[in-house]
Design a protein around this nucleic acid. Sequence first.
DNA 1: TGCGTCGCTACTGTATACATCTTGCGTTCA
DNA 2: TGAACGCAAGATGTATACAGTAGCGACGCA
Lengths: 250, 250
Amino acid sequence: MSERDTERSVSQTVRAQLALRDMILSGRLRPGERISELQAVDITGVSRTPVRLALVRLEDEGLLQAIPSGGFMVKAFTERDILDSIELRGTLEGLAARFAAERGVSARSLEPLKECLADLDQLVRQDPISVEAFSAYVTMNARFHAILNELSASAPLIREIDRVSALPFASPSAFVMAQSALPEAHQILLLGQDHHRIVVDAIENREGARAEAVMREHSRLAARNLRLAVRNRTHLELMPALALLKSSAE
Amino acid sequence: MSERDTERSVSQTVRAQLALRDMILSGRLRPGERISELQAVDITGVSRTPVRLALVRLEDEGLLQAIPSGGFMVKAFTERDILDSIELRGTLEGLAARFAAERGVSARSLEPLKECLADLDQLVRQDPISVEAFSAYVTMNARFHAILNELSASAPLIREIDRVSALPFASPSAFVMAQSALPEAHQILLLGQDHHRIVVDAIENREGARAEAVMREHSRLAARNLRLAVRNRTHLELMPALALLKSSAE
DNA sequence: TGCGTCGCTACTGTATACATCTTGCGTTCA
DNA sequence: TGAACGCAAGATGTATACAGTAGCGACGCA
């Protein structure tokens, strides 16, 4: 039904954007491959005008790269690019946390964040964590990060964080599912949750430097997950984002 | 001549983008004002297709805001938004400097930065600084920042810095010209140049934390300039970016 | 056999016509 | 007199036709 709704109500541009993004992330369009407008028309079934807009949007989303002579190609990323993007997100989220801490947040507006924290606590408490719980964790984790960013009350900053997190391998939840297959899974989850706890505490006590530092460190868990998961090589299918890696690592 | 070249060789899309950006920054399109495609067609003289692309590009450049029901309006910024954008740029440039310092930069690739530093030294040495020298300073300062960012050797980071600096009030040179009218002008220039000197030194000695901290502080000079210039209210014409401020400050 | 040039093909850039939707104003009814 | 409904105007969303250009291949000449 929601499928139907999507097909009917959403604009052709958005539909094309979703279809193309899916093709890229699933690896059916390989990094470096040129993607012509007509090809995109074939894929998406809409005409060139919305396809063109979709391509432009995917370009500034960072998934495509403009070719000087015209047209677009699928962007390729190195492992270093991915790690830098994660560090970048951590830096921005750190700034958001610092803003929240330094500028002060009312007890009332801190409430949703604390509720979210409690929900996450509930989830990580199970010892062998079920796949469903992992999935719920991903959702709730994204929510936690979103609320935290909002607390910065800085529109320009939130905009940039959203932008950076749109890269499939830079989002706070990018490698959580991959992590679920690791033996260290539970321990990493507990570490992450402790970071969450600390940042809430730091904001409450207006400790800007502490809030910033812990969010930076928090993002490095994603980097650690990435390295572990790539090394183990099993469950690469849990990380669709890796389809964008330059061939060497594939 | 370059005018001619622009008119001839550049695509209609780019031409429309430039014309519209100019209209916005010059204040002829006021913040909050809706800008219809047909209106934009009248302004730019090109047809709706390239106009549309130009509008989309200006949206993700941050100058326009999409209206939910379709179309775009000129984005309005608060003084707080501007200050946050400056802090944001400082944070990103700080990260770039830290990357450069921690990862190490060869003496050879540090050379252009040092040359740039020496050129800047030459410029700030004059005591009553001429307007021409100020103008030259703006150019050279932009060059210094560009080289510094490149030294991070991080494509994703450079991309974001460029993006943030594209906002007319967030670029490293945004308020330098405005500053030229202030009595404190020379002193501020010397402070900024000292920051430049320190960051080069820190990178050379692989002091990541120092390089990061000084670039953050460096960006706050822009915030200080902004505040001073707004308070003095003279020479607001040197800061076209302020056309985007929400009405209160105008 | 290699290099240069010519021509073709297929792509992107642009304009415009048509369809759909939203918004605002006017009219009518309670 | 106020509110709600309907219509009209103008906006955006979409499709497509046409023009211009770049890239590639083939052919010819040295």
